[in-house]
């Protein structure tokens, strides 16, 4: 029953899903390495961006704006309380002025139908800043807490965001416009334009991340914090600022994933969780430490998912999440636990 064209189609499908999981795995690994937070709410950011992007196609003013502004105000209060009034100016700039500026732009641009590229950019701009705001609200107050406490905080943020998502976007799903409707035929393989775009954007984002980590000072600081928090602090790198930067990057990556996934499927306010969970499987396979390994694992997860959908669609999720078990066994035999050191 399986012939070459089916196999190629399944592989292509797996690689496209895998690329998105890969992006999310990157965000998870990055945030965990720098802050020891397992960023479960990354899935919500994905679905919020996708829904915002789909809404912009109808010229809707993004429904996430009140959420962004409210998170900003909350982060401001939280920051002012924690720092007891120090450096209020820059805090206000980042938590009040920036979201307000984004909201202003969004209100102006949204009704214009400014084209897919602008809409995608705007959707990311509306949702991505939520990640650093969440960091300020929920994770910055717990810098020295154990991984477990941070995990519990992350679960709390995830649950809160799911509820707020229902409030903002409503229960219905939406589907964004495709970047390209082109269909290419390469021998036995049918290649959709959207698939090419997903792979292209993912590769570009990964290259940009690589360049950022290798070539910029901020990237080097992030790497230093990831390798050794205390050491980084001793040479004058603020782990707090690194954490903020890591969340910014995670927000941008999640936003990009949301825009890429929106034309592929119907996204719901709570749909991102499962997508994020598959990115998490890939990140776990990579031991929450290695970026290239995480991407490779994400591609494997995508292909396994696609193949099992063909052979045993009943057990697809079971198969995908079972992949993690042999890897965990192998890892626990080879390594000691990650995370509780310092």
């Amino acid at each position: 029953m399986m012939d070459l064209s089916i196999l190629l189609a399944l592989l292509q499908d797996g690689v496209v899903s895998g690329a998105v999981y890969g992006l999310l795995a990157l965000a998870l690994v990055l945030v965990f390495a720098v802050t020891r937070v397992i960023l479960i709410p990354v899935g919500e950011l994905v679905s919020f961006t996708a829904l915002t992007y789909a809404g912009l196609e109808d010229g809707q003013i993004p429904e996430a704006l009140p959420l962004l502004l409210a998170l900003g105000a909350l982060a401001f209060l939280r920051g002012a309380l924690q720092d007891r009034g120090r450096s209020l100016g820059s805090l206000a700039l980042q938590t009040l002025v920036l979201p307000a500026a984004i909201a202003g732009c969004a209100v102006l641009i949204a009704p214009l139908h400014a084209g897919i590229a602008v809409q995608a950019g705007l959707a990311i701009a509306v949702v991505a800043p939520m990640a650093p705001l969440l960091y300020r609200i929920a994770f910055r107050p717990l810098p020295e807490a154990s991984v477990l406490v941070k995990l519990i905080a992350a679960v709390g943020v995830h649950l809160a965001l799911t509820g707020l998502g229902l409030l903002c976007f409503g229960p219905e799903g939406a589907r964004g416009p495709a970047f390209s409707d082109a269909v290419l035929t390469l021998g036995p393989m049918i290649l959709t334009g959207q698939a090419v775009w997903v792979i292209f954007c993912t590769t570009a984002a990964m290259a940009a991340l690589w360049a950022f980590f290798r070539l910029s000072l901020a990237g080097a600081a992030l790497r230093a914090t990831a390798i050794n928090r205390r050491g980084a602090r001793l040479v004058g790198i603020s782990p707090d600022r690194s954490g903020l930067l890591a969340f910014w990057l995670a927000g941008l990556i999640a936003g990009l994933s949301g825009v890429l996934i929106a034309p592929l499927t119907t996204v719901y306010y709570d749909g991102g969780f499962l997508i994020g969970l598959k990115g998490f499987v890939a990140a776990i396979i990579a031991g929450l430490g290695s970026y290239p390994l995480a991407i490779a694992a994400a591609l494997v997860v995508g292909v396994v998912e696609s193949l099992s959908a063909f052979w045993a669609s009943d057990f697809k999720e079971v198969i995908v999440f079972s992949v993690i078990i042999p890897v965990l066994l192998w890892r626990s035999l080879r390594h000691c636990a990650v995370g509780e050191e310092e």
Partner: peptide
């Protein structure tokens, strides 16, 4: 079978068409 938040049903659809 497929699940509500699935991003793709290409595998299932190819099997159906086969």
């Amino acid at each position: 079978k497929y699940a509500r938040p699935d991003t793709s049903v290409t595998g299932q659809v190819l099997k159906i068409m086969a």
